[in-house]
Amino acid sequence: MIETIDFHIPELDAMKKYPKEIFCIGNTELLKRPKISIVGSRKPNQYARQFSHEIASKLSQAGVCIVSGGAIGVDAICHKAAGANNTIMVAGTGLDKRYPAINRNIIEEIEKDGLVLSQFQAGVPSNKYNFPLRNELVVALGGILIVTYADIDSGTMRSVEYALKMGKEIYVLPNRMGESDGTNKLLNKGLAQAIYDVDEFVAKFGVVKENNIAQDEFLDYCKTNPTYDEAIAKFGAKVFEYELSGRITIKNSSIRLF
């Protein structure tokens, strides 16, 4: 059921204008948790996919609520990695819609166990001018902003502009030349800090208890980029199970982590 937030959210005072209305579905107690916003490209490379997942997962295990925008790519990866019960999705449509449709199952899980927010009334479609407003809200909610992959002149870089105006610390993954030129430019200009060690970074915000980290032999194996045939020979049906759950993808006859 769509409700209206009836209390003040201090983090949103950083916005150019505090939202007139904020609609929600889910657990508003998450708004009182320590929060970090993570954003990035809809088409990140495999390196960014892997570390987006690892960063979001470990921050979540350390007690941080992950905020993102529900888009395909980095957003969806981070929502999944955090777990539906520890993530806030900010929508760019009215909450009677689940956009993008490809993420419908993820959004439904967050509605049930996490929190979905929107500045737009029911019935408002995915107009392009909605998303800058969505992005500003995503950035404002987090204590810092993490950008794992971004091209120059992308929508993600508009989120960075909000973070700079709000005085937020920005963290990025170090990428190779010719990849994620937007975040590389931020590093070059001294506008962002690089995450070189995920565990060391996460330790700034909380403690990940060892017994919270379940070792997964198959996922560790997938980090070696095995071929599909090699994975089937070694792990059999587990390959199909993980593909169906969205934790891996199969591309050009090779296994890739989601």
Score class of each variant (00 low, 15 high):
Ser57His: 15
Gly73Ile: 00
Tyr47Glu: 10
Ser68Cys: 06
Val74Glu: 10
Ala71Asp: 02
Ala62Arg: 04
Gln50Trp: 11
Cys78Gly: 10
Val67Tyr: 02
Gly70Ile: 07
Asp75Asn: 13
Ala71Ser: 08
Ile72Leu: 12
His53Cys: 09
Val67Asn: 07
Gln46Glu: 14
Tyr47Gln: 05
Ala48Leu: 09
Val64Trp: 02
Ile55Pro: 04
Ala71Leu: 14
Val64Glu: 07
Gly70Trp: 06
His53Ile: 06
Ala76Arg: 13
Asn45Pro: 02
Arg49Pro: 08
Ala62Asn: 01
Gly69Ser: 08
His53Lys: 13
Val74Met: 03
Gly63Lys: 08
Gly69Lys: 01
His53Tyr: 15
Ala62His: 09
Ala56Ile: 06
Leu59Val: 13
Gly73Lys: 07
Glu54Thr: 13
Val67Thr: 08
Gln50Thr: 14
Tyr47Thr: 04
Ala62Phe: 03
Ala56Arg: 11
Arg49Val: 05
Ser52Val: 04
Cys78Leu: 09
Val64Ile: 15
Ser68Val: 00
Gly70Val: 03
Ile72Val: 14
Leu59Gly: 00
Gly63Phe: 06
Glu54Pro: 01
Ile55Tyr: 05
Ser60Ala: 15
Ala71Gly: 08
Cys65Val: 15
Gln50Cys: 10
Ser52Tyr: 05
Leu59Asn: 10
Ser68His: 01
Cys78Ala: 09
Cys65Gly: 11
Ala56Trp: 12
Ser52Asn: 12
Ala62Ser: 15
